[in-house]
């Protein structure tokens, strides 16, 4: 059986070489499909990373009036921290706010000087609230509005990251679904090209197939070499796609890191090498073999 298997692969390889021009076409279009597929995966990864890192930055700040006491602020803080949707609350006193402000503007002499001349602290104490889920910020704001200590709160702010996140999500959803459509269309083209290549081989070997049938070859014996041929297109296409994709990701990775520090696309695909290689190879061979199976179907009758 092992010897038969080798024979089948051998004759598939012979077919592959005989149709070099069409084999090349089938292999390249399939490689293109696989590269696009990998591109979609990268996009998926990138948009997920960007959105998560932005979501981490969503928070709500409640600024206190200058006459609010620290007790009142801490009371609100403890009220908030027992809410289930709150992940973290930090109290920033007036002094801390000032120190923070000074530190941030340490280089700017004008600001430092004008701060020196003030006798009171112009900055307000505040509570900084992070929620578990970005969609919960509205209910936190609501809670503060209804608080019995609403009187000591000056204003409630939240960073308007939400709009940005929504836009990124909708853009990436759009690119993803269009990318998926384009990939599917190209996959169909790849199947058609492979189908025709294998059909041409079958046509040039009509006599062999007829003789095989007459001497009592089972369907698997007839089908085997053509499935192997299609599988080989997929295998080579997978190698080509990976050989294009990895260097491309390597170069793109630097550019992406410049925009969005902390996102390591290349690292992501390097740690996943075994899975990526396996998935792309299997996908390629599956495409090739399905096309061959369709092409040979008609010739297996009787």
């Amino acid at each position: 059986m092992a010897i038969n298997f080798k024979k089948i692969i051998d004759s598939g390889w012979t077919n592959f070489k005989r149709n070099s021009y069409l084999s090349f076409a089938a292999t390249s279009i399939m490689a293109l499909v696989l590269v696009l597929f990998l591109g979609l995966l990268s996009l998926q990864f990138l948009s997920l990373q960007v959105v998560t890192s932005l979501q981490e930055k969503i928070d709500i700040s409640a600024y206190f009036k200058t006459d609010a006491t620290e007790e009142q602020a801490l009371k609100i803080k403890s009220d908030l921290s027992i809410l289930p949707e709150v992940a973290d609350v930090t109290y920033i006193s007036q002094e801390e706010a000032l120190a923070d402000f000074k530190a941030r503007h340490a280089q700017e002499e004008l600001i430092q000087e004008s701060l020196e001349q003030l006798d009171s602290n112009p900055l307000a104490a505040s509570l900084n609230i992070k929620t578990k889920d970005p969609s919960q910020y509205a209910s936190i704001a609501q809670f503060l509005e209804n608080s019995s200590l609403r009187g000591v709160i000056d204003k409630i702010n939240f960073y308007e990251n939400r709009g940005v996140i929504d836009r990124i999500e909708s853009i990436s959803r759009g690119v993803r679904s269009w990318g998926l459509i384009v990939t599917l269309v190209l996959a169909l083209v790849a199947v058609l090209v492979t189908f025709n290549t294998v059909r041409l081989t079958i046509f040039s070997q009509k006599q062999e197939i007829e003789i095989m049938r007459l001497v009592g070859a089972s369907n698997w014996h007839i089908r085997g070499p053509y499935l192997a041929e299609g599988g080989l297109y997929g295998l080579f296409a997978a190698f080509i796609a990976l050989a294009i994709f990895y260097p491309a990701v390597y170069f793109a990775s630097d550019k992406i890191a410049a925009f969005a520090p902390g996102i390591n696309l290349f690292g992501y695909f390097i740690t996943g090498v075994p899975q990526v290689v396996l998935m792309v190879t299997l996908l390629g061979m599956f495409l090739g073999m399905v096309s061959s199976a369709i092409a040979i179907r008609k010739h297996l009758k009787i």
Partner: peptide, 30 residues
């Protein structure tokens, strides 16, 4: 078809295979 042998006017031999391979081929496929 393996129970019935067939012979034709036009021989239906595989031209790229030797005499031995033509016979071996019929055995391989079964």
């Amino acid at each position: 078809r393996r129970k019935i042998g067939t012979v034709y006017q036009d021989f239906k031999l595989l031209s790229r295979k030797t005499a031995y391979e033509n016979v071996a081929f019929a055995m391989e496929v079964s």
